[in-house]
């Protein structure tokens, strides 16, 4: 039995169409015209306990809507969703005890209070037993290295510090599932690494199921065993990063460093860019194997070094959207 079951989930919104200008706004008060938008048009997936899933898609694809339904904020128009046997929007209070939610854009901490006071308020809100709170807060504060920040009012924290505190805040009640909505947005490189490291540890060592939405493909590559791609309210792809790569155009990349700049030309290879003696090449391994291509090049050109690369994940996703006619 999966921990999270989502079946033919649909969500339609009625969006009021407002005419521009003062007269339009006035007439909108009396008579509104509505347009129906299918935010989710039948979404299915199952997630097992302990998985770390990347949930990605362009703005307006239905990512946030899915997360909001799964966390009990929104009621779907149709379909089924059960998380640990509970229906999120029907058993809100019981369900939210099992989950932690972090929104990268908004903090859940009390702006004017020291960090530690926010943690203690959350302890009382979630009714965490004092002994459990002592152990879990101490442990989390240690891992995230928050001890020096505990007495600082939240408004004085940097974005990276705040995100570390928000992560801890969402885990004090020891949820079995963690939703992360763009947790690395706007963070500097060091903070991003710290957040990723923490999420990885949490997932590996505590078996917390993590569902991560992000626009940062490095997050996906660093963290996710499984990637669910959504576009236009439908699941476009669900599988490992490797299977996503294999499913799409199986193009490989070669970075070639020559001893001197030359006019490069070779059969079965496409030149993407050439800068002096450094060339970026693309080829299709179903037309020519990597081994024979390297052999050909090495025999014909003055090669200094060769690197084989995978195409960046952004390109894979863009291809997927293009193939499914989703507007990114």
């Amino acid at each position: 039995m999966s921990q999270i079951v989502v079946e033919s989930l649909e969500k339609r919104f009625q969006v009021a169409e407002r005419s521009p200008g003062f007269v339009g706004a006035l007439s909108g008060v009396f008579r509104r015209r509505y347009r129906t938008v299918d935010a989710l048009a039948g979404v299915d997936f199952r997630i097992d306990a302990g998985e770390l899933v990347g949930y990605i898609g362009p703005n307006g694809a239905g990512k946030s809507t899915t997360i909001k339904i799964l966390s009990g904020i929104l009621t779907p128009s149709a379909g089924r969703c059960e998380i640990e046997g509970l229906v999120p929007w029907q058993d809100r209070k019981a369900h939210v005890r099992n989950i932690g939610v972090v929104f990268g854009q908004r903090t859940q901490l009390w702006w004017d209070l020291p960090v530690i006071e926010s943690f203690e308020l959350l302890r009382d809100i979630y009714r965490i037993p004092p002994s459990q709170y002592r152990t879990s807060s101490r442990e989390l504060i240690d891992i995230m290295d928050l001890a020096p920040l505990l007495d600082t009012p939240v408004r004085q924290l940097s974005l990276g510090q705040r995100m570390r505190c928000d992560l801890v805040a969402s885990l004090l009640h020891q949820p079995s599932i963690l939703f992360l909505d763009e947790p690395t947005i706007g963070l500097d490189a060091i903070s991003k690494l710290a957040v990723r490291e923490f999420v990885k540890t949490l997932n590996r060592e505590r078996r917390v199921t993590v569902i991560l939405t992000t626009h940062d493909m490095d997050d996906i590559e660093a963290l996710c065993d499984r990637i669910v791609v959504i576009g236009g309210g439908r699941i476009l792809s669900d599988g490992t990063l490797a299977s996503l790569r294999a499913k799409l155009r199986s193009e490989r990349r070669i970075k070639l460093e020559l001893l001197e700049p030359v006019a490069f030309d070779s059969p079965d290879v496409r030149v993407i860019s050439a800068e002096g003696a450094t060339l970026h090449l693309a080829f299709d391994p179903s037309v020519i194997t990597t081994a024979s291509l390297i052999k050909n090049i090495a025999e014909s050109w003055p090669v200094k070094d060769i690197f084989i690369e995978n195409p960046p994940i952004e390109e894979l996703i863009a291809q997927l959207y293009a193939a499914n006619r989703v507007n990114a």
């Binding site: 966390s71 904020i73 809100r92 209070k93 019981a94 939210v96």
Partner: peptide, 13 residues
């Protein structure tokens, strides 16, 4: 306006 109401719904009270 701020969407902060979501946070209230995410708490078991």
């Amino acid at each position: 306006k701020t969407g902060h109401f979501d946070r209230l719904l995410l708490r078991p009270r």
